[in-house]
Design a protein around this nucleic acid. Structure first.
Lengths: 165, 165
DNA sequence: TATTGTTATACTCTATAACTATA
DNA sequence: TATAGTTATAGAGTATAACAATA
């Protein structure tokens, strides 16, 4: 007999299902807008936006990956696309010659600026519209705590054995 | 100067960024668990779970798509994989011969049961752990309202198909 | 004509492992 | 030895459009 797992209560299920459906549809819609407005995937937008928030518009590859991408090769791939399109440039780091520094170009900032109004528009219409200021604060507070918790939990050391018989 | 878009306030940004990061990491972790435990992708799990919740364990393709998949061909692909593995069966609908009915098999229920405890475990450890009962209720309430709002905005499964030209 | 589902195809994205180079 | 990043490659997933069949 498998050990019985206490079931989730209705509120827990509701929170989970709503989270998944909301984030999935929001991401899908935003992805369309970003592609239409600037030819960006969502990951590419996240990378550009992360660089845009950095003090000097540049970051090391590893720091850029944070929370956006789950493998180094995936990051290399996405940054490669951005560089191909002239939105970022890569250069060896002067401090640690193993590192690569990624910097936003003017063209990258332009694309970010061109894409941003529509992005905010989608967020307002689809996500924020039915929420009061209190709702938004509650969401930011609760989800912020979950995010902080997730960041402290060490990633599952999953040794993939994917084949099933 | 073009009329600027009023920026999002810090709470709005915080709610949005936390939502994206939390849902992304949660989904990624759950995806690994589902793959390890039952060889399922997240979409496949959602489809099986949706069928499992249906009164007789079967649904029409179109009804199955709701909230899970964004194109008809994507649904056909995923259901094809599930059928190949014996987890569902497809049969022509008796009421409307254009329709296909998808039914969960015993093997499909088994996989669902085998995968579920670990799924709940991940949700508890990664998502629910730092939250009080009040937090969970607040999340379910607020995100539930957003989900309801999103459902009213675009009619997803009835999305118009491109015209033939 | 509109709807339901499938197929063909092309494309995007991701992940593992092997590799180079530096610390 | 450990870390930073790249590359090769393979596979999973997705979307568009054309298609057939039924309403």
């Amino acid at each position: 007999m498998p050990a019985p797992v206490p079931p989730l209560d209705p509120a827990e299920l509701g929170a989970y299902f709503s989270l998944i459906e909301v984030s999935s549809l929001l991401r899908h819609t935003v992805e369309q807008q970003l592609k239409d407005a600037g030819g960006l995937s969502y990951v590419q937008f996240q990378l550009l936006a992360t660089l845009g928030d950095a003090p000097d518009g540049s970051l090391r590859m590893t720091d850029l990956a944070d929370g956006v991408v789950y493998s180094r090769s995936g990051l290399t791939y996405q940054v490669g696309l951005l560089e191909r399109d002239g939105l970022v440039v890569r250069a060896p780091s002067t401090e640690d010659e193993r590192s690569t520094t990624v910097a936003l170009t003017d063209a990258g900032r332009d694309v970010l600026g061109r894409v941003f109004p529509g992005h905010v528009e989608v967020l307002r219409q689809l996500f924020l519209e039915p929420l009061s200021a209190d709702d938004v604060h509650a969401l930011a507070d609760v989800l912020g705590r979950v995010r902080d918790h997730m960041r402290t939990v060490p990633p599952r050391s999953a040794r993939p054995r994917p084949k099933r018989g």
